[in-house]
Write a protein that binds this DNA or RNA. Sequence first.
DNA 1: CCAAAAGTGTTGGAAATACACCCATGC
DNA 2: GCATGGGTGTATTTCCAACACTTTTGG
Lengths: 231, 231
Amino acid sequence: MQKPFQINRAYKEVQQITVAVDCLIFGFNQGNLELLLVHRGFEPERDKWSLIGGFVVNDEDLDDAAYRVLRELTGLEDVYMEQVHAFGKADRDPYERVISVTYSALVLKENYDDELVRSYKAQWFPIDALPQLIFDHEEMVEAAMRRLRRRVKTGPVGFNLLPEKFTLPQLQRLYEAILGEKIDKRNFRKKLSAMNFLIRLDEKDKSESKKGAFLYRFDEEKYNDVKHFSI
Amino acid sequence: MQKPFQINRAYKEVQQITVAVDCLIFGFNQGNLELLLVHRGFEPERDKWSLIGGFVVNDEDLDDAAYRVLRELTGLEDVYMEQVHAFGKADRDPYERVISVTYSALVLKENYDDELVRSYKAQWFPIDALPQLIFDHEEMVEAAMRRLRRRVKTGPVGFNLLPEKFTLPQLQRLYEAILGEKIDKRNFRKKLSAMNFLIRLDEKDKSESKKGAFLYRFDEEKYNDVKHFSI
DNA sequence: CCAAAAGTGTTGGAAATACACCCATGC
DNA sequence: GCATGGGTGTATTTCCAACACTTTTGG
């Protein structure tokens, strides 16, 4: 009879595996939801594009590895990021067995280090016009999008894709881009003003219209009072 | 200047890490949602309890590793199982660095191999009366419960915890156990009969009441017609 | 005959949806 | 003065929650 598992934990003899993190870096620009990808200049799958990845080293928390990879590519710190899924088919990477854990990051396109990104041959693509991706990276994008859609409906995470001050038309376009559907302007604003964590400032942004739209900011305190969010 | 990541993929030199899967095996028994745990008979954390785990070997899909671990402990095949989360703090296992990917399984308690389970010193515990667990396993339970609650509200996965034929009172008790709250009988049944994928059989189960309750079965075909579920 | 669980509809309130016009401004 | 996008309220429908009595039958 076999021994219980936990007694089998002859740790040192257990096979070890290469573990990677792949980051789905989302940005919002001129009404488009975009994803940051790097060009793959070598075989196999040369000239396809790939998510930004890196390997996890032994004394590093998995989450920290994802933050490191993000920082190395964009120079950004303090970014909203969450784990999406672990992809572990034995043959998902034809070169060697690699388990990849994906993370979804919402970054402010205006903040990242453009130099750095260019030096990595990285490029932003609108989410609905992605190039061919390597391996199972399209599946990763799908999984991250499903989660992002759910998240923005149930929590105040979308604001991470907008600057501190933003207008309601901007916010609505962001939601439309993420959810992939038109939203009724009046109903959208009604919901937002019901949960009252948006503060209207005495400033207008005239860059996108003649009339100008009021700027708002998200008030974390007020949100924490009720912790309710539903779009 | 650093080279782009993907060009750094000197795979062979990358540090490798022990990867485990831990299974949250849920069962439903006499109105209680239960979790199958194994007793840990050795240090560190001797006499605490732990999820059922095992290590991923190199030519094995991550999902397959989880199925293997489940099968080895319970003898069950064809079980509903889904990945929950990858736990990767560098020091989560004090003995060695192990990344653990958790999977949530919904099993039919009447089907599993009792002999096998006992031989592993495994035991079922009601979800609201768990013993002390090792490492970060309580966090794993929390994560799996959150997901299970969401899943049973939005999809027909709860039926995996009941036999082929079941009564509505049983189903309701299952939902109450998972969601941790009382449910109104009439509203519950109204929702179920609105989505009409439950077939009432001409049999009653009299084991739990004098009057007896009609047996139902879940009709997958009918569910697939509309693919709508909401409790 | 009575205790215990199964079964069954209606109503009121809340939330979601649909929908159309005026306003301010730059050109 | 007109084209462009910003801003606002109401009526309808749909969904959800609350709620109480009758039925069956084993003991």
